Structure formats: structure tokens, C-alpha cells
Amino acid sequence: MSRHRAPRDRRRRARNLRAVLAGGIVFGVGATATMAAWNDSEVATGSFAASVFDTESQSAGSPTYASRPTAPGATLSFAATGMSPGVSHYAWLNVRTTTATTVAGDVSLTGVTNNSGGLVAALEYRAVRMTAPNPTATCAAAAFTGTPAYIAGGASSWLPVTSVPGTPVASPVAAAGGAIGLCFEVRVVNGAANSYQGQSATVTWQFTAASSN
């Protein structure tokens, strides 16, 4: 009996070994099939640069264009050392963008600061945007005739020198040296009290410039 069982056992172990080897081969084929796929990537780069917006001013009393962001700023030459009620005095101001400015914008009268002197309370004004910068255009009574572009006051209305329009009036200014001319008219109010005689005043107007894009 034992002689017959031994060959059968050997044949059984051989079958089991072949089964294990077959399983290993299957597993090996499966591992090879999970190899990573081909891959690649793309990269994109953008370049950016900010625009430039810068302004400068000029007046008869400050004839050289320069940046004047703080008081006293440009000197307005009113020639108003002997003012009387109802008599107007005029002064011009040019505002332009610098040659390095790359975008257009707007200039608006937005504030009055540094008012001083006893005559301040008796002064009133109005202002217009001229058809061209000075001295090409002349800042005088003629600038307020017809239908000028008022930036403060109006044809029949004046503002105290201590105030500005509630809604600023924007004046367009072009890029790269674009200039606008402004003309101020100031007078002592009609009917001013005699107590204002001999008094003086200093008034500083503030403009705000903003790029349009």
C-alpha cells in the first residue's frame, strides 16, 4: 500500500507546485500592466506694468510748470491790492499732465484751505475752464461771457471764497502733456461793510486730479 501512495503524493505535490507557479505568473503579469502613462505639462507667463498719471501746474506768479501738491502751491496773480466792492480781479492757472503720463484724466476743484485775513468773509468768486491754456487764452472779463464752462459758480451766481461746488465739475485732461486753462474771478461783495476797508486775505484753492482708467 505505501508503495502505491508515494507516487500519488508526488504527483499531487507536483500539481500544487504548478498551480502556485501559475498563480505567480498571473500576479507578475498584473504588476507589469500598472506601469505609469506618459505625461507632459505646459507653462504660461504674463507680464504687467502700471500706467502713470501725474500732473503739474503753472500760473503767472509761478511760470514754471512743477508739481505742487501742498499749500501754498502756485501763486495766483490777481493784482488785487486795492479792492473795492463789486470790482472784479482775475487770475489764471494752467494744469497739465507730465510727458511721462500714459493715461488721460480729470481735474476738479475740490477744496479751499488756509483761508486767513479779515477780508475773507467779504470775498466771493467764480471760475471757468478756458478754451485753451494761458497765455493762448486770456483770463479776463471776456472769459465769463457767452456760455463758458463753469467749474465754480455760474453766470449769475458766485460762491464765498470759503466754499467749493457741492458736486465737483470735472475738466478732462489728456495724457502726455495735455493741458487745460482755468480762470478765477474774485471780488468784494457788493454792499460790503465799511469795516472791511484796509483788510486783507489769503485763500488757497485745492484741485484733485484723477486718471480716467
Score class of each variant (00 low, 15 high):
Ala74His: 07
Leu119Ser: 05
Trp38Tyr: 05
Asp9Leu: 15
Thr131Lys: 08
Ala33Val: 14
Gly61Glu: 02
Thr34Gly: 05
Ala50Arg: 05
Gly181Glu: 10
Ser157Cys: 04
Gly30Asp: 04
Val29Asn: 07
Thr147Glu: 08
Ser51Thr: 12
Gly117Ile: 08
Ala192Gly: 08
Ser157Gln: 06
Asp9Pro: 00
Gly28Asp: 11
Val161Pro: 12
Ala170Trp: 00
Arg13Trp: 12
Ala155Phe: 11
Asn39Trp: 07
Ala36Phe: 11
Ala127Gln: 12
Ala174Gln: 10
Gly118Tyr: 06
Ala210Leu: 10
Ala209Ser: 15
Gly82Phe: 10
Ala209Gly: 14
Pro168Ile: 06
Ala91Ile: 06
Arg12Thr: 14
Ile151Val: 13
Ser41Ala: 13
Gly23Asp: 05
Arg68Gln: 14
Thr131Tyr: 00
Glu56Ser: 11
Ala192Gln: 09
Arg96Trp: 06
Asn213Lys: 05
Pro172Trp: 02
Met130Ser: 00
Ser51Met: 00
Ala142Arg: 00
Thr32Glu: 08
Ala176Leu: 02
Thr202Leu: 08
Ser156His: 01
Asn213Trp: 01
Ala74Pro: 01
Thr204Gly: 01
Pro69Asp: 13
Pro63Asp: 03
Gly28Trp: 03
Ser57Lys: 00
Gly198Phe: 03
Asn115Val: 11
Gly82Asn: 15
Arg13Met: 13
Leu93His: 04
Asn115Thr: 15
Arg129Glu: 13
